[in-house]
Amino acid sequence: MTIFQFILWSVLKVAVVTVVMLLAVAYTVLLERKLVGRIQNRWGPSRVGPFGLLQPLVDGAKSFLKEDIIPAGVYRPLYLIAPIIALGCALISIAVVPFGEPVSVAGSPHLFQISDVNIGLLVILGVTSIGVYGIALAGWSSNNKYSLLGALRSSAQLVSYELALGLSLVGVVLRAGSLNLRVIVEQQATQGMLTWNIFGGMQFVAFFIYLTAAYAETNRSPFDLPEAESELTGGYHTEYSSMKFAMFFMAEYANMITVGCVATLLFFGGWTSPFGDLIPPPQSMLVHALFPIFWFVLKVFCFLFLYVWVRGTLPRFRYDQLMNFGWRWLLPLAMLNIVAISLWLAYR
């Protein structure tokens, strides 16, 4: 494969994945509004299109057409670049996620993954850890006490929970012996559901630590302290309007989707079928290639559903509770989990 073919394929894959990702973000917002509506005993959006299905398009148009207000006291360069950092980092991390089996057509590289890197898992962690600057700079440059408090809370929360998050993934890496997401999935796929990391791989503690820490990392309820409406009006994006606000909003949902993808890949067997070889492989090439995508999307959807369910159910933590929980419970638990998993792997 020449370098031009490589660039062409990469651009194509990036374009497709970005479009799909942005569409998914738009419809995750709708999913959340619908589900939270049902949880609170109301209908949610139902006016635009059948079942409110066109609501995201109208919301997007509204964000574009709204007046873009830049307050007088802001520090302009950082104020303008902060939403770009937030959304950029949220979208970049999807680049290493494999959506389906490595299929290649006509000399192309893997069709369902933008780039298959050896350290895919760490790349996701690294990009997410850069993403915090979007929030921190937005809060600081807004020159508003609520924004600043939101940004400070967010940076402290992210630094604290990143440790537990990273440590919870060590068990998975130990079992797979690789940081490559494709290898991690393939190693879980031997016996269907039984060998998924969460069941056969004895990673259920790690899974719950990961899920809790990831909810805190994405600033989602019950850890949405950085934008607690009752205390901070809007948190770090108080001073943002129009498309800039929409960019933070999209970044949050894109991060949710990434967390869903990573949880699926690491603990729930990625694109593999839960029934293993019980279902005979389909004859048609196309179905054979698309079946894994179906499982992957289904699993990620379940995680997004869970996100909304948790938001509709649990009250917000208090700030000291958040810090206590992160440092005194989650972190030691994650370390004990590593020791336990290592012993299990050594003596099984």
Binding site: I130, V132, Y133, A136, S155, A156, V159
Partner: peptide
């Protein structure tokens, strides 16, 4: 990711 966040913090 981590150390510079503390700096900006």
């Amino acid at each position: 990711g981590a150390i510079m966040v503390l700096f900006t913090f």
